[in-house]
Design a protein around this nucleic acid. Structure first.
Lengths: 245, 245
DNA sequence: CCCATTCCGTTCGGTAACGTACCGACAAGA
DNA sequence: TCTTGTCGGTACGTTACCGAACGGAATGGG
């Protein structure tokens, strides 16, 4: 599986060279250079654990074309996604606000390339470069808004709408029309049954918005998907966009 | 209504003198004195608007015995509670991370006493006193954890469990066994039907955990309520407690 | 090439919660 | 005192989703 993931990556080098991280892009040139110099580029396969609750944050990750999921784990083991982190953000930044401990289980949801930086160096760079710290804080502020919207979304919207939103957000972040994802995983992220996802996904496929097969989704009609998604998609993207002024 | 609220306050002066705010309590003596000197004490009646989305944050509020609700408003006007802020926290602090704009509708859910401080002075004090800023950041970090738990809770737990949790959290924050609250309002906060709350509340009353009548709830058996609540109650209180070390 | 595994289509009965509605009881103001 | 509005009990049919399960089909490792 590792090897396969590696092959996929190599076969898509052309898109990868375009991949970038919004936070890094938004830094002033000199700060950006200073930060970039310390970054390490890594390719992470599906399901790589990023943080375990209660552990120290080892690295912060800037996704390029992969996606990281942060999930809440209930006592009975049920997992549910709290937020996804892609090119628009960074994982581990909330450690800045406290003691550098991770509180939520965090792992790679879509394999891809990431920049990473040890948490200690990240803290040091934030202390040294105001614009970096400011950008990270804006991102955390966006995170609060996004999670506020997700609380409403999880409570009020239908499964098929939330699936459409999830696929759209993923599509935005991976820069590819196709990505690996099973109904099972999607169901866990959304906190619904796998069968529920199968039915809703079949509807979206019927409508020509997507196609999928055996752990692989393809976005066929983005505009159609946008119509099928709940208002939360736009609200969340706007929460991120507002911080890029 | 204003006058009635005023009377209630006066009649409970004995508990009010004990009321305090955890964030303020946790400040080192000198910083605390400096901050306290700038605070204004206000009594806010039910439903006072604290922030409107898109407006500048005028004041930050430190609740003493009242409760502030932050809600997400959907396009169709449906509201749903994102987080409640009581003695353990502060409202408006997230403005520190960005540009001082409010993004969510915020209002007084339980009338009571609050300290308040203009946002500008708050920012200045945070810049000047490291321990204040650190405490506020820890609180924001807790907020992220709490919201993460709420996302799971809203998706996975039953209405009666979530009602029990809401009542427990309120009970912790108001320092009184009785508080004003209608089924209607509770239903809105939880994102369910009023009738659903009525049924679930009747169950909790039957079980001897609470009693209520015409816009007034009374906690009768706290331990019983804790048994009826979901695990999220403990998880959330722990997220706050962890930052008080 | 075969086999174990993964993935997804589909079904079943069950149920928590929905939207809507009506009504009685109480409270507050005129 | 009467009226008006708020509050909560209750009921109806409806529905989105649940939990569990079975089975076919594609996949990839041995």
């Amino acid at each position: 599986m590792f090897y396969v993931a590696g092959k996929r990556m190599r076969s898509e080098v052309s898109t990868l060279t375009l991949a970038s991280n919004h936070l890094l892009d938004a830094l002033p040139g000199d700060v950006r250079d200073a930060v970039m110099r310390e970054l390490e580029r890594v390719t992470l396969p599906l399901r790589t654990t990023i943080y375990e609750p209660g552990e120290r944050i080892g690295y912060v990750y800037f996704p390029l074309d992969g996606i990281i999921s942060v999930v809440t784990v209930m006592r009975d083991g049920t997992q549910i996604e709290v937020v996804t982190i892609g090119r628009e953000g960074i994982s581990g930044a909330q450690g800045l606000l406290d003691d550098g401990m991770a509180t939520a289980l965090t792992f790679v949801q879509i394999a891809g390339d990431y920049y990473r930086l040890s948490f200690e160096r990240f803290v040091a760079l934030c202390a040294r470069y105001g614009p970096l710290r400011a950008l990270v804080e804006k991102y955390l502020s966006a995170l609060l808004d996004v999670m506020a919207q997700s609380i409403a979304c999880n409570r009020l919207n239908y499964v098929n709408q939330r699936i459409a939103r999830w696929l759209l957000m993923t599509h935005d972040r991976v820069w590819r029309d196709e990505f690996r994802l099973t109904h099972e995983v999607l169901a866990t992220m959304l906190g619904v049954r796998r069968a529920g996802v199968s039915i809703a996904a079949a509807g979206l496929q019927q409508a020509g918005c997507i196609s999928y097969s055996r752990g692989r989704f393809t976005v066929v009609d983005r505009t159609g998907l946008e119509g099928a998604a709940c208002e939360c998609y736009a609200a969340i993207e706007e929460a991120y966009a507002r911080r890029r002024s």
